[in-house]
Amino acid sequence: MGETGGHGRATQASTPLYQLKADFFKTLGHPLRIRVLELLSVREHAVAEVLAQVEVEAASLSQQLAVLRKANLVATRREGSNVYYSLTHPQIAELLRVARGILTGLLEGQAELLADLKAGRHG
């Protein structure tokens, strides 16, 4: 299980799980990709619907959708001239919910600390 087609990247089978996880989180590490995944967590969307929601240039959206497709996080289907996107795994929506919960807890903790600092109750 060596290298793949001259790209210098190890195959998935020989890549440690922590590296695969890091690559996965790198894929998630773009605000527009997160926004798209959040929209798709609710329901399938046509490209035009996503474009109206995210308020970016079509080329930029297309580029980010391609990254998500390549990572197998979204799937497409064509109906007439429309292309629809959906999540490949419902766990993606759950991951976004968990991240929101973690961030909410962190921000609440920071707000409490700030309130303590302003009240002179810290340090």
Rank of each mutant, 00 (worst) to 15 (best):
M1T: 13
M1I: 12
G2V: 04
E3L: 14
G6M: 11
R9A: 13
Q12F: 11
Q19T: 13
Q19I: 13
Q19H: 11
L20Y: 08
D23K: 15
K26C: 09
L32D: 01
L32G: 00
R35E: 14
V36K: 03
V36T: 04
V36Q: 01
L39A: 14
L40P: 03
R43N: 14
E44M: 07
E44S: 15
E44W: 02
E44G: 13
E49N: 07
A52C: 02
Q53W: 04
E57M: 07
A58E: 11
S62W: 04
S62R: 09
Q63T: 12
L65V: 15
K70Y: 08
A71H: 04
L73V: 04
R77N: 09
R77T: 13
E79W: 06
Y85H: 15
S86P: 06
L87R: 04
P90Y: 03
A93V: 02
L95P: 05
V98C: 09
A99P: 00
R100N: 03
I102E: 06
L103R: 14
L103E: 10
L103V: 14
L103G: 09
G105A: 05
L107S: 13
E108G: 12
A111E: 12
L113H: 04
L114S: 15
L117P: 01
G120Q: 01
G123S: 04
